[in-house]
Design a protein around this nucleic acid. Structure first.
Ligand SMILES: [Mn+2]
Ligand SMILES: [Mn+2]
Ligand SMILES: [Zn+2]
Ligand SMILES: [Zn+2]
Lengths: 137, 137
DNA sequence: TTGATATATGCAATAGAGTTGCATCACTAA
DNA sequence: TTAGTGATGCAACTCTATTGCATATATCAA
């Protein structure tokens, strides 16, 4: 019986090292998106570079996606569409709380279709809302 | 007869120094959003710090707005709603071209209303589309 | 006009996130 | 078992953003 972490990493062709499994579980248990600094703080005796490369490997293999919430610091959250190997990119909006500084994925909020002027072709989209989150209201 | 630059800066309570007027006109004549590095390149013998603080002053006084296009480098574009002193923030979408790397304001594209889960209060919004711009198709 | 005050600029140093090179270690497959 | 590939540890470095402080310039009231 394999853990979810092992299954997902295998599905994404990421070798399930001890560090990667721990980082996966860490991400899994956090409600808000995670920075490299978060990992450094919470994985006390781990190497910054290894954590960095873990995130980059996860990103490249679609285990996580990077979120840019305007703070200038990259945040990462797990991709949730682990079902199949070639699932489409999961477009959803992100919410950044100006009070607690947390950034979360709102995967249930669908992004409406945006029409563009002639000549523009959209390939990707990021929708970020800022305000006060449900923990801070 | 004052120039537009002088009028706008006065309206925004920004002292119209020579540098600021030049930067304003520069921004005015560029179709795409501008980085600090752009200013450094095109204002050859100017101080990086002065250009930096010019952008920051413009931003604070709502002469420009900052755009985060995911490149990790801040870009700036003129606010266009100069009409009145206390006009509301002009929400519009931004388009980043993956080919020429330009980022532009699409002020005519209205951002649809987004409904949020209970407890979330939105104060601001950023919508970024990435793809191929009209110059590159 | 002049002196006091506030603001802008120039220059240098620093902060901080992100990234890379390289040696060593661990795992995998033949 | 061994060669080869990938992961990790450690250090150095890049690049953008930011700050401190001295000097210059503008503003304003007397
Ligand atoms: Mn997300
Ligand atoms: Mn804009
Ligand atoms: Zn909050
Ligand atoms: Zn383009």
């Amino acid at each position: 019986m394999k853990t979810e972490a092992e299954n997902v990493l295998k599905l994404r062709n990421v070798r399930p090292t001890a560090m990667r499994l721990m980082v996966f579980d860490y991400l899994k248990n956090r409600k808000a998106a995670v920075t490299l600094a978060d990992l450094e703080n919470d994985f006390d005796h781990s190497e910054r570079t290894t954590l960095y490369r873990t995130l980059k490997t996860f990103e490249k293999n679609r285990v996580v996606h990077q979120i840019n919430d305007g703070s200038g610091i990259a945040k990462y959250a797990l991709d949730l569409n682990f079902q199949d190997k070639f699932s489409a990119k999961d477009l959803h909006l992100h919410f950044h709380c100006n009070v607690c500084n947390a950034t979360v994925c709102l995967t249930d909020q669908k992004i409406p279709h945006i029409s563009l002027p002639e000549g523009f072709v959209a390939e990707d989209m990021n929708l970020l809302l800022k305000g006060i989150c449900d923990n801070c209201t």
